[in-house]
Design a protein around this nucleic acid. Structure first.
Length: 301
DNA sequence: CACTTGACCTGTCCGC
DNA sequence: TGCGGACAGGTCAAGT
């Protein structure tokens, strides 16, 4: 589930917690796919390295090291990055006081490592960083920092929606490359625009009153310009709420996000559309994805 | 080339 | 209670 707001929330937490810490050791659990690096790189460029910064591009986290290598991390659907200070492997006191205001006993995570832990990083001060990933789709790669932008994903990924230099006009130009496809898959296409996933695609399309199955070519420039503004608004709102916790997303300190409390359509099938109290949100399938719409606000054009 | 579908995984939930 | 199947959704490879 981590989309841009979730990855950004994790980044904010890690950027506060990690810089200055020195990597002492790394344990890779059952899945080589989770951290497919040659041991000599780990030996030379990870052990003893000081963390110098934490960045994000699209849905990818970048942990920069003093050795001019970076840890490139994609959480895919169920990945988590959880920090634990000192030798503690249980939640910090105060964990559970999350963005959603949940009860501490509702914590989504307990002692670490657990059975979903794929990589555990130990720092010289005794603190730990855990990469958990129930479904093993995610990965961590150790890459020379200068080579990060040469990775295939970064070569083709589109502009950052929250970057001030990314304009609505640029978005329209890029999504027009997919004039033949439907709006939802075009919006999910990371080479058009970075960072939008299933939750925020549904929310933004509802806000812009565009049916997800409408072909891009049938949507006016004016509507596409508005859609971009809605994408920006929904991403910013979600970041301010710590992202969306649907099933298992948590931030670097184990807290849930509360955006779904504010969602208009996502996971709200059977509930009234905020704009039409008499109309119920429907769940349909578009391009293989669960998709939420108001059948009155959003009609195929 | 543009576009769509299936694979990658595991846990959960639903119907029988 | 057990069990098969659908579903969850980010990205890439393979297909049309």
């Amino acid at each position: 589930m981590p989309e841009l707001p979730e990855v950004e929330t994790i980044r904010i937490g890690l950027a506060r917690l990690l810089p200055g810490r020195v990597v002492a050791n790394v344990r890779v659990f059952d899945s080589p796919k989770s951290f497919p690096n040659v041991p000599s790189d780990v030996e030379h460029f990870l052990y003893g390295a000081t963390i110098t910064g934490v960045r994000r591009r699209a849905k990818v986290l970048l942990i920069e090291l003093s050795t001019d290598y970076s840890l490139v991390i994609h959480l895919k659907m169920t990945g988590q990055m959880v920090f634990r200070s000192a030798a503690k492997t249980v939640p910090e006191s105060g964990a559970g006081q999350d963005f959603a205001g949940g009860h501490p006993n509702d914590s989504l995570i307990g002692a670490l490592p657990d059975r979903s832990t794929r990589v555990e990083m130990m720092f010289s001060d005794g603190s730990h960083l855990f990469f958990n990933d129930q479904r093993k789709f995610g990965w961590i790669k150790l890459v020379p920092t200068a080579a990060v932008e040469l990775l295939p994903f970064f070569q083709k990924v589109g502009p950052e929606p929250l970057d001030k230099t990314t304009t609505a006009k640029l978005f329209v130009q890029r999504i027009r490359r997919r004039n033949g496809s439907m709006m939802k898959p075009a919006l999910l296409d990371q080479s058009v625009l970075a960072g939008v996933g299933n939750i925020y695609a549904d929310e933004a399309l509802w806000a812009a009153r565009i049916h997800p199955e409408t072909r891009v070519k049938h949507v006016s420039d004016e509507q596409l310009l508005q859609l971009f503004e809605e994408v920006v608004k929904v991403l910013e709102l979600s970041i301010s709420k710590g992202g969306s916790t649907d099933k298992n997303y948590i931030d670097a300190e184990g807290r849930r996000g509360s955006y779904l409390t504010f969602a208009n359509v996502f996971r709200r099938e059977g509930q009234p559309c905020p704009r039409h109290p008499d109309v119920l949100i429907e769940k349909i399938r578009v391009a293989g994805r669960g998709t939420h719409i108001c059948p009155v606000c959003q009609v195929v054009q």
